[in-house]
């Protein structure tokens, strides 16, 4: 407990104590190393245990058939999961199209536009957004937003009905639980993480660059366009990928609002499903091969999100190194 070392005088070293102390040092080192290694152990165990358990499902269809098959009928042992992969990709990509510009805007507002006091409030708002549990977002979305927004979807579908192409993407539908609603919820949930990383990235832009742009007579927007954005491009790509990874793995909010159809539709107003959501929806009633298949979807999702996260971290780190190089 005391901050100083043991009271033994250095002149007369107690060899026994010394040895014990050395052993303690070695033991402590082993302990903390083991703690650090748990991260690798858990990741490895996830991969091994879930893969082993889901092997029957992959064998049933073959790896390719499992990923690309378009029919999901677990009662007949037909396990094509492509509709879910499609749903995951489409909802999270639409979410990124909405969330990335908004997050960059917020980050710019915080770093460049807001006064110090407003800045604090906005940071608080974004932090609060990050702390709201996803199931609460889902609850509000399914019980409040879905009933309110369904007529708006209908109105929009009627509006674009004469436009070829658009009318296939935004077609008639009689439910508010669909790809678009899921995308909107995902967008809201991705904003805090993208914003916080975008802020970090913007903070690394050298102050001298900004002052130089202003000194040349640039307006604020021209300074952002000429000094901040080119500097931050790599980091923003990484931030967007992290947001994408988060959106692809989001389960409960999506499970509540996506509708639960296991078919695929180009019409974004139709119900669908995502990889994460179908696990939550069908878990309770699953057993045997059906359950193995759900775990197999989890393995596929794990592989995709780990890959995206890994790439994102590499991109962010590269960008940071590059920026620091430019700075010095």
């Amino acid at each position: 407990m005391t901050a100083t070392a043991t009271p033994e005088a250095p002149a007369e070293v107690d060899l026994g104590g010394e040895a014990r102390s050395r052993r303690a040092d070695w033991g402590f080192r082993a302990l903390v190393t083991a703690a650090g290694l748990t991260v690798l152990a858990v990741l490895g165990l996830i991969l091994v245990t879930t893969s082993l358990r889901s092997a029957p499902a992959f064998q049933d269809e073959g790896l390719i058939g499992f990923i690309t098959g378009t029919r999901w009928a677990p009662n007949d042992d037909v396990l094509g999961t492509f509709p879910m992969l499609y749903g995951t990709l489409i909802t999270s990509l639409i979410a990124m199209v909405i969330a990335v510009p908004v997050s960059i805007g917020i980050a710019l507002f915080i770093t460049e536009v807001a006064h110090r006091r407003t800045r604090k409030y906005i940071v608080t708002v974004i932090d609060l957004l990050a702390t709201v549990p996803s199931v609460v977002f889902g609850l509000v979305a399914v019980l409040v937003v879905v009933p309110a927004i369904t007529p708006a979807y209908q109105w929009f579908a009627d509006l674009v009905a004469p436009v070829p192409g658009l009318n296939a993407i935004f077609d008639e539908s009689n439910t508010g639980r669909n790809y678009i609603t899921a995308s909107l919820v995902l967008a809201i949930m991705a904003v805090p993480i993208i914003t916080s990383i975008a802020r970090e990235v913007f903070a690394t832009v050298p102050e001298t660059d900004k002052q130089a742009a202003y000194a040349l007579g640039a307006t604020r927007w021209e300074m952002v366009k000429g000094a901040i954005l080119p500097h931050s491009f790599g980091g923003l790509v990484g931030a967007s990928m992290l947001g994408l990874g988060r959106a692809m793995g989001e389960t409960i909010a999506v499970a509540l609002v996506i509708g639960g159809a296991t078919s695929m539709s180009a019409n974004l107003f139709e119900p669908g499903n995502t990889m994460a959501a179908i696990i939550a929806q069908q878990w309770g009633e699953s057993s045997g091969l059906h359950q193995d298949a759900l775990i197999a979807i989890g393995v596929e999702l794990f592989a995709i999100t780990v890959l995206i996260n890994f790439l994102a971290r590499v991109v962010v780190r590269r960008a940071e190194i590059k920026m620091k190089g430019a700075h010095s």
Partner: peptide
């Protein structure tokens, strides 16, 4: 380990659930 800890923060919570279910 640092990189993998970052990657681990991105593992979807449902996958953690499946892992503990199996293991």
């Amino acid at each position: 380990i640092r990189t993998m800890a970052d990657v681990m923060t991105g593992v979807p919570s449902i996958v953690m659930g499946l892992f503990i279910y199996v293991a």
